[in-house]
Design a protein around this nucleic acid. Structure first.
Lengths: 295, 295
DNA sequence: GTTAATTACGTCGACCGTAAGTATG
DNA sequence: CATACTTACGGTCGACGTAATTAAC
């Protein structure tokens, strides 16, 4: 059993060439010369004893063997790159946190000052693009996501439940009847929230409506909490929003609660960690997050 | 973003030292000198800018950062080693097939001669230790497993259904009543098969017994098909075995079917491939397997 | 004093860039 | 003839082994 693995250089060259379909293109990406990349490729093929590319017509195309090899090399390199970058970040006291924009601005950022004061050597970077967050190649140290995570390979700790509250502008509330149960909100116009975990749909389902009936209700439909909130402040109707998100608006009076009803959602926020064991910096922040969410 | 990844050498040194807890021990495993390993470790720490080990008392112990890093490095290296070895095997026309011993001896090996004759340049190696097969570090090109695979990361193709037949020694059958339905076998002693997918339990469940009743039935309990078959041949009772397994015994008359009843199991054999795209050699063998199972 | 890790030093080999060579459209 | 991969050549830098050094028990 030969213990000789290809060098990371060779593997990165292979990956780049396979991706680009061209030695020249790959060499530009890698900041190397054509010849260096070409030689790495050849030595890799020599080491494996297999041809990985089909050489023809001034182009390199992946072989069946090359395709199979690439399928394993790419994720392995991704993992190494992620781990290496995480380790580097741990050294520099840098932390990359994935979180939804709404939750970040309304909940995390206001509290972040306290963390930064307690740990001034740690600089926290927020990553709010959830699409990028779910891509395998993206790097983050921990993430706060709503609902069940799609990948099972990482640690997932329950963080906090979400409570929905129905709010409206003070003017609108004055103009309408009192709300005593969940279904009473139907006497007002509704501002709908769209997306996979719709707050308005949760509330209206609880009020006894089915999916079709909810779809047929009139009223504006907004994709983000922020837009929903703005509509409510303009007096367009009742909005259903997480408590953490409307704390400020309730405080300054631009929105008021239309009743004391609360809806605890069936899902909750989870703390996602890309690996079981984590660096001291990550442990610090994750403990702080859990202490925030616990009470 | 620095593109510099550690060399595979450095990573292997790190992994070995973390595993052994000692530079000396690791250097022996790696066929290197102490000093070389020590220097690789230091340069890795320099590259990452993080200490990975706790240096104290003549021993190296993994740091929190080191533990987190190792958690990613180990599977990545495993994947690279597996892929590299697969590629090397593809070049040498060698194929490593994982399969249960019973299925191998009764079904695959008798047919393997045909494959070897058609493709004399391919040498097939069977790996029948299922425990080793499920370990992440073990290398195989394809495997034939019964039931749902536990890992989801690989391709899984349905291969063939399993049909159970009830057999006994000719003498035993003569001494007892005829079997017309599944429950009639209870008039004979039963040879039980133990394990996660028990053939006897499948049959007896079909006959209307619940789990507790099956457990309370008398009769020998054997873990492998081979032992079950031997018991049946000794006249100890009725055995429930896959059709492929008893073909030979039925042919030479050492066992006879006690009825024309067949039980098609709910599970079936699956062809497991560790990756989506595979080498020509693997494709050849997997196509041959599917052509065997299809009719 | 023994064991184990680190440091020092000289050598050898691997990898790179420049540049020439070769094949293709 | 232009483009793109391969091969040749020379230089540099890294990695290794031997051996000396430091530290712990």
């Amino acid at each position: 059993m030969s213990r000789h693995l290809p060098s990371t250089q060779a593997l990165q060259c292979f990956e780049a060439v396979a991706r680009c379909g061209s030695v020249t293109r790959a060499s530009e990406q890698l900041n190397m010369t054509q010849s260096a990349v070409s030689r790495q490729l050849r030595s890799l093929e020599d080491l494996l004893g297999v041809h990985l590319f089909e050489r023809s017509r001034q182009r390199l195309r992946l072989n069946a063997n090359g395709a199979a090899y690439l399928d394993s090399v790419t994720p392995a390199l991704d993992q190494l790159r992620n781990a290496t970058q995480r380790a580097r970040r741990a050294a520099s006291g840098h932390l990359c946190v994935g979180i939804e924009p709404a939750l970040a601005s309304a909940w995390l950022i206001p509290q972040l000052r306290g963390f930064s004061r307690a740990h001034p050597h740690i600089s926290v970077e927020l990553m709010t693009d959830m699409e990028k967050l779910h891509a395998a190649s993206t790097q983050w140290d921990l993430a706060i996501v709503y609902g069940e995570p799609d990948e099972g390979g990482q640690a997932c700790l329950p963080l906090m439940r979400e409570h929905l509250v129905a709010v409206a502008s003070p003017e609108l509330l004055k103009s309408g009847p009192a709300v005593r149960d969940f279904a009473d909100v139907l006497q007002y116009p509704i501002i709908h929230h769209t997306g996979p975990y719709s707050t308005s749909a949760s509330w209206l389902t609880r009020a006894g409506l089915n999916e079709r009936e909810i779809r047929q209700l009139p009223g504006p439909r907004m994709e983000t909490f922020s837009l929903v909130q703005q509509c409510a402040q303009q007096g367009l109707g009742i909005a259903f929003l997480p408590t953490y998100f409307v704390t400020e608006a309730l405080g300054n009076g631009s929105l008021v609660e239309i009743s004391d009803l609360r809806l605890t959602s069936e899902q909750h926020y989870n703390l996602l960690l890309p690996q079981a064991r984590h660096s001291p910096t990550v442990a610090l922040f994750s403990d702080w997050l859990q202490s925030l969410a616990a009470p």
